[in-house]
Amino acid sequence: MIQRVQTIFLFLIAVAMGVALANPIWEKVNLQPPAMARLTALVHTQQQTPLQQSGLPTQTIPVTYEVSVWYLALLIALVGLSSLYAIFQYRNRLTQTAMCAVNALMLTSIMGIILYRTLYVGKEYGNPADQGTFLPGFYAIIAALVFNALANRFIRRDEKLVKGSDRLR
Rank of each mutant, 00 (worst) to 15 (best):
L168M: 13
V15D: 05
I61A: 06
L78M: 14
T40K: 14
R91K: 15
L84D: 00
G80A: 08
G80F: 05
L12T: 02
I155S: 04
N152F: 15
Q3C: 04
R117S: 12
S82H: 01
S109Y: 14
M99W: 03
R38I: 08
A86D: 01
P33G: 07
G126R: 10
I114G: 05
L78N: 10
Y65D: 07
A151M: 04
A22M: 09
R4L: 10
L115C: 04
I114E: 01
F9L: 05
L168K: 12
M36C: 07
G137N: 07
V63N: 07
A151R: 08
D158Q: 10
Q89E: 13
Q89I: 00
I114W: 07
Q47M: 15
T45F: 00
R117Y: 11
G164H: 06
I76D: 06
I76A: 06
N92H: 13
G18R: 07
F88V: 06
D166K: 11
M1C: 08
G80R: 05
I141R: 02
T45L: 14
L74C: 04
R153C: 09
P33K: 04
M111S: 06
Q59E: 12
E66M: 14
Q3I: 09
E124N: 15
L78I: 05
N152Q: 12
I155V: 14
G80E: 04
L56D: 07
P136S: 10
T60N: 09
S54F: 10
A22K: 14
P57T: 07
P50I: 05
Q32W: 05
Q131E: 11
G55R: 03
L42M: 10
A73L: 05
Q47S: 15
A140T: 09
G55F: 12
V5A: 12
A73Q: 06
D166H: 11
L145E: 05
F138K: 05
Y125C: 01
P33L: 06
G122W: 13
V29T: 09
L119M: 09
V102E: 04
S68L: 10
A14G: 10
P128F: 11
I114L: 09
R169F: 13
A22Y: 04
K28M: 03
V79T: 08
P33R: 04
R157V: 09
E66L: 05
N103Y: 02
I2L: 13
L51H: 00
T108L: 15
N127T: 10
Y116K: 06
A143L: 12
Q131S: 11
A37H: 07
A22T: 06
A16Y: 00
P57Y: 04
V19E: 12
Q3P: 01
Q32T: 14
A86L: 03
N30Y: 03
S109V: 13
E124H: 13
Q53A: 15
S54Y: 08
Q96L: 02
R91A: 06
L150D: 02
M99F: 10
V15C: 02
N103A: 12
A140N: 08
